[in-house]
């Protein structure tokens, strides 16, 4: 299929328009975060700042305990990535490579939990975490990830299924136990899928707002997403600081996305192919 010149021009026009509408707000966010407060007031619609005020970032960082929040966010991210990868790859192994009674039924249940609104389990979860003493600790956000999550299990299972059964059989004949097969053969072959799951979990943990809202009360434990919401309420009249803080919060995710774009998009595409 080839396009003639007129069609090409039309295609580019449509693509460019869509690009401006979708990516434009991000450009506005970035450039406006560098404007002086006066310019945001007087000249909110120009894209580029007249004076580039990099101090906005310094001011935003000192206006809240930014690095403390960042540390908490990273701890939650790292902890929950480890938890998700371990628990989900194990469960995915059970669902793809092992035969056991109830497997298919439980797989149906697993898919069902994806459809369950989080509200239904929100209150009991809160109480449960309180009872085990995790309320108001970072653990409240990390420990549950060691108990698996349906989406990641599903994604990993889809991948494990593509690994030929012969490999496992050969290993069994060599006397390797199930753990050995899982750890030495399946996992190393599944690095792309594991990376995808880790990436998604990292971003989910970075962005999570309702979890901290519900489970953390001490400011010293707040992650960035939650700290930023508090920032919104206390600095609502200082748009330049808000935009700078929002940019700082967003930038790592954007960079991460650029570094991992292929893995990322492939991972998302697989979720649609049930």
């Amino acid at each position: 299929m080839k396009l003639n010149l007129a069609e090409k021009v039309l295609a580019y026009a449509a693509l460019l328009l869509a690009a401006v509408l979708l990516a434009g707000p991000l450009a506005i966010l970035f450039f406006s975060s560098l404007k002086t407060p006066a310019e945001i007031q007087s000249n909110p619609h120009a894209l580029l700042p007249q004076i580039w005020r990099w101090e906005n970032y310094g001011d935003a960082v000192t206006a809240m305990p930014f690095f403390l929040y960042l540390r908490n966010t990273l701890l939650i991210c790292l902890g929950s990535v480890i938890g998700t990868v371990i628990s989900c790859s194990m469960a995915a192994y059970a669902f793809s490579k092992l035969q056991w009674p109830g497997r298919n039924l439980l797989f149906g249940v697993l898919i069902g939990t994806m459809l369950l609104p989080w509200h239904v389990t929100m209150i009991p979860r809160f109480l449960l975490l309180r009872e085990v003493g995790l309320y108001n600790t970072l653990g409240a956000l990390i420990v549950p990830t060691f108990l698996g999550d349906a989406f990641s299990i599903f994604l990993l299972r889809q991948f494990f299924r593509t690994i030929p059964e012969d490999l496992s059989e050969a290993a069994r004949i060599d006397g390797l136990g199930e753990w050995g097969i899982f750890w030495r053969i399946i996992l190393p072959l599944s690095k792309p899928a594991v990376a995808t799951v880790a990436l998604f979990q990292f971003i989910a943990a970075w962005n999570d707002f309702s979890g901290p809202l519900l489970l953390l009360s001490d400011k010293r434990n707040f992650p960035l997403a939650y700290g930023l919401e508090q920032f919104v309420s206390s600095y609502s009249d200082q748009t330049h600081l808000l935009l700078a803080a929002a940019t700082l919060f967003t930038l790592p995710i954007v960079i991460l996305f650029f570094l991992t774009q292929r893995t990322f998009l492939k991972g998302i595409a697989t979720t649609g192919l049930k």
Binding site: P65, F66, F67, L68, R71, L74, L75, R220, P252
Partner: peptide
């Protein structure tokens, strides 16, 4: 990420004012 975590950890000590 690890490097970021270390930097944040170091910097966060100043945030416990």
């Amino acid at each position: 990420l690890l490097l970021l975590a270390v930097v944040a950890y170091a910097a966060s000590r100043g945030d416990n004012r």
